[in-house]
């Protein structure tokens, strides 16, 4: 579902992300780990062509669309509908003046999906949310609810890929578990491809099949999650692991 070769993202001549290879297949979960500023979030945004003002080179295919050369209309058609983004701070990612239901209905209509109340309720129930929450504003829901709503959006739109940028780091521990549980279950049920950006190695070890370790914009190590986390080859990965409680 995601295919990246020789991706380079530069801001004002400085390379902030350099990813030689990254593939995520259906039903697979790949995690990019590293400290903040290591270029992992930028990589994620580049996959949807959302890096404003950056020079992006290389080759990116998401859901069969060549992101760097596709016309804007085609790119917009896959955004949300086929490849969904889940951002770190759940409430900031929702427009403060728009009720959740209004946002969902607009998005469904935009992509020509069923925007009936029943379809919306089904998506909400898939992430264990009360459909009544659709009547609320972002500041009236909890962080965990907002994050699950973002996933519900992806479900309602029928996304095949979820790109999640630190989906749990702004949440309490118990709420984190809820969100991770939902992600894991959906991945199994719907064969979703999941690309996860996180600095939380504990989370990564429970969900990811493969891991990319990034430092200062470069990939320093990659491989199956079990191997990378058990026998880290790069000193930086060891450092990250040692930082775990």
């Amino acid at each position: 579902m995601i295919e990246v070769r020789d991706l380079k993202v530069c801001y004002a001549g400085r390379t902030v992300a350099d990813v030689p290879e990254l593939d995520v297949g259906a039903g697979e979960c790949v995690a990019i780990v590293g400290e903040s500023g290591s270029g992992k979030s930028t990589t994620l945004l580049a996959l949807l062509g959302l890096t404003d003002g950056a020079d992006v080179s290389g080759h990116i295919r998401v859901c069969g669309v060549d992101v760097l050369t596709a016309p804007p209309r085609e790119l917009r058609a896959i955004r949300g509908a086929r490849a969904a983004l889940v951002l770190q701070s759940p409430q900031a990612a929702l427009s403060p003046a728009t009720r959740l239901g209004v946002l969902m209905r607009r998005a469904l209509r935009l992509h020509g999906r069923d925007d009936g109340a029943a379809a919306m309720a089904r998506a909400m129930e898939a992430v264990l949310l009360d459909p009544a929450i659709l009547r609320r504003y972002p500041h009236e829901v909890s962080g965990g609810q907002a994050q699950r709503f973002a996933i519900a959006l992806a479900i309602a739109l029928g996304a095949e890929v979820i790109l999640a940028d630190e989906p749990t780091s702004a949440l309490d521990v118990t709420v984190q578990a809820e969100v991770v549980g939902v992600l894991r279950r959906l991945r199994a049920e719907r064969d979703l491809a999941l690309l996860l950006v996180s600095h939380d190695l504990a989370l990564v070890s429970t969900i990811a099949d493969r891991v990319l370790v990034m430092k200062d914009g470069a990939v320093v190590e990659s491989g199956p999650a079990a191997r990378v986390l058990a026998e880290p080859a790069h000193p930086y990965t060891r450092e990250l692991l040692e930082a775990l409680p």
């Binding site: 945004l45 949807l48 959302l50 917009r76 058609a77 896959i78 955004r79 949300g80 509908a81 969904a84 983004l85 951002l87 770190q88 701070s89 900031a92 990612a93 929702l94 427009s95 403060p96 998005a107 935009l110 992509h111 972002p138 973002a150 959006l153 739109l157």
Partner: peptide, 10 residues
């Protein structure tokens, strides 16, 4: 972020 989310929704 919410504007970015809007763009990410297509």
């Amino acid at each position: 972020d919410h504007a970015r989310m809007g763009r990410a929704l297509g």
